[in-house]
């Protein structure tokens, strides 16, 4: 029961914030990927930086249970699947979470995206045995690995000599710095043009 209440609270907050940062609006996702409006890129980099910094600080301080970490396996299919996802991400301006959230806000192209997504997931279920037989799901680079050694976990480290917590803190700071250093746009004129059209509040 507790876990259902947590699902409602954290899931609800996630959906609310996704909408408030503009991630349910494909104009911002496509604007980011065509490098014309980096608002979402800065938002996401800052989010990864803040969560990484606080999580590894919490692990060092002993206030976060390392057992709550969940590191996914590395295999060739992660790269291939990421690339397939990237194609649809660019063409539609939606990823799985933002597509579902956008459909819920009343975007009809989001509904079309989610129907296609259900079919794509079904196609993967149907082809899983074949995909597995090709070997692209075989672990690489240590499998469920982190960059450094994170105390209290069994995850192998890509760089066994490094403290995973320190790597996490440093990378968190780097993500935050990049978020601040990135310009609003990499296409001359467009970031400012978007601003004047009222596409985003301020940067």
């Amino acid at each position: 029961m507790t876990s259902i209440i947590l699902a409602i609270v954290i899931g609800g907050a996630f959906g609310f914030v996704l909408d408030r940062v503009g991630a349910t609006n494909p104009n911002y996702i496509i604007g980011m990927l065509r490098l014309g409006n980096l608002h979402l890129m800065k938002t996401i980099l800052l989010a990864i930086g803040v969560s990484s910094l606080l999580m590894f600080a919490g692990l060092l301080a002993g206030v976060i249970d390392p057992g709550h970490l969940s590191v996914k396996t590395a295999y060739l299919g992660v790269f291939l699947g990421g690339a397939l996802l990237g194609l649809g991400f660019a063409a539609a301006g939606y990823c799985p979470g933002t597509g579902l959230a956008a459909a819920a806000t009343g975007r009809k192209d989001g509904v079309a995206f989610l129907l296609g997504g259900l079919l794509g997931a079904a196609a993967y279920m149907a082809s899983y045995a074949w995909v597995k037989s090709t070997g692209v799901l075989d672990s690489i680079l240590g499998g469920k690995a982190t960059l450094g050694v994170v105390a209290g976990t069994d995850y192998p480290a890509l760089m066994p000599g490094l403290s995973g917590e320190v790597v996490g803190l440093v990378l968190g700071a780097v993500f935050i710095a990049v978020a601040f250093l990135l310009p609003d746009s990499l296409r001359p004129g467009e970031g400012i043009a978007a601003h004047h059209k009222g596409h985003h509040a301020h940067s």
């Binding site: 063409a91 539609a92 939606y94 296609g116 079919l119």
Partner: peptide, 17 residues
């Protein structure tokens, strides 16, 4: 295009895990 993209995105996401 959104439908086809949804297909690619979820096939890709499940392949990637």
């Amino acid at each position: 295009v959104a439908f086809v993209s949804g297909f690619l995105v979820l096939y890709g996401a499940r392949l990637a895990g």
